[in-house]
Each structure stands twice: as structure tokens, then as C-alpha cells.
């Protein structure tokens, strides 16, 4: 539906667009982290793009995830996912969904990150609506948004250790702040 946005992106930024896809009517562009800010600024300011509305920002934890085997492939092995071609599967995908109200088109920008390097440029100063969304993504996944004006936890308390929506967070692990003194045992 917004294929022309993808085409324009590819024409303008070439190499910085690693991959594109269209899923359920949504166009997705996987972009290089270093170029994210330039791409986002252009998307916002160019008259033909005019993405004026931030829809959401979130993160996908791809721990041990492998793509579904493409139909018609002979081998039963599912190849590891490696969009950047550096031989390593990324652990996280941070995504920002944008919408243009005047042109009625949408696009999703994605950045792939490796486990030990979770820094990503913040888009909160381009669209103020991403401020709290990026704080939530930091809170839940521990993504480090570089240049965010106020990166603090938004839902959880400061005493909380870890990031609960990461797939390797133990799913029933609680970190209580208070308990009754007359209760015994750990909870």
C-alpha cells in the first residue's frame, strides 16, 4: 500500500536500507543504525513523505528465533536469520511505526541489534510522541536510546532489576517491594 515510500527510500538512501518487506499491508524497512536519524528526519520533513504522526515504538526479542522455512525449499534445516550478512543473528529489532496524515500512508522503520550492543539513536526529539514509547521500550527490553531527553523507567520501579519482556527474563520472577512481616517463606 505504501510501496512508493519504500521505493523512494531505496532510491534516496540506497545501501542504508538493508531489507524491505510488506506484511499484511504494512511496509517495513530494515535500516542501518547509523543512518536511522537521517532517514527519519527526511521522512518527517520531505513534502512527499510528510510523516507527521508517531504511531508506536517497540522492540522484538528474537532470542533463538529462526525464520519459517520458505515454501518449496528442499532442505528441512531452517537457516539462522542474518539480514545484515555479518554471520551473526541479531537479538533485538527495534521498530518505529510512522503515519502520514496528509498522504494517508504508513511505514515501519526497524533497526536490528546484537545482544551485547543495544544502543540505538532516539527519535524522541523528532516526534515528541516517541518520548514515553521509547521509555517503555527501555523499561521492558533495556534498549539504550542515545540522545533521549529523559530515559528513565516508566512503568516499573527503580529497584527493579532486569527487563521483564526480554525472553530470557524468568517468567514468574517477582521483585517485591514490601511483604508482611508475619509471613514466612520467600515469594
Amino acid at each position: 500500500m505504501s510501496q512508493k515510500v519504500l521505493d523512494a527510500l531505496k532510491a534516496k538512501f540506497g545501501d542504508a536500507i538493508i531489507a524491505t518487506e510488506s506484511q499484511h499491508g504494512d511496509e517495513v524497512a530494515l535500516v542501518k543504525r547509523e543512518k536511522l536519524k537521517d532517514i527519519a528526519t527526511w521522512l518527517r520533513d520531505d513534502a512527499a513523505m510528510a510523516f507527521d504522526m508517531p504511531v508506536f515504538c517497540t522492540c522484538i526479542d528474537l532470542l533463538d528465533w529462526r525464520p519459517v522455512k520458505a515454501p518449496g525449499t528442499a532442505s528441512s534445516a531452517r537457516p539462522a536469520w542474518d539480514p545484515t550478512g555479518d554471520g551473526k543473528s541479531p537479538r533485538f529489532e527495534v521498530c518505529w511505526q510512522l503515519r502520514s496524515v496528509p498522504h494517508r500512508h504508513r511505514i515501519r522503520l526497524k533497526v536490528a541489534l546484537h545482544e551485547n550492543d543495544v544502543k540505538v539513536p532516539s527519535l524522541a526529539l523528532l516526534w515528541l510522541g516517541f518520548d514515553w514509547q521509547e521509555r517503555e521500550t527501555f523499561d521492558m527490553y533495556g534498549i539504550d536510546f542515545q540522545g533521549h531527553p529523559d530515559q528513565r523507567r516508566i512503568y516499573l520501579y527503580d529497584e527493579f532489576i532486569g527487563h521483564p519482556l526480554r525472553k530470557d527474563y524468568p517468567k514468574e520472577k517477582r521483585q517485591p517491594l514490601v511483604r508482611r512481616s508475619d509471613l514466612v517463606g520467600d515469594h
Binding site: Y155, L156, P164, Y169, K171, E172, K173, R174, Q175, P176, H187
Partner: peptide, 8 residues
Amino acid sequence: YQNYHAMP
């Protein structure tokens, strides 16, 4: 709820 945020 049996998770990180809800008190049992």
C-alpha cells in the same frame, strides 16, 4: 496473573 508485575 502469574508474572513479574502482579502481587499474588
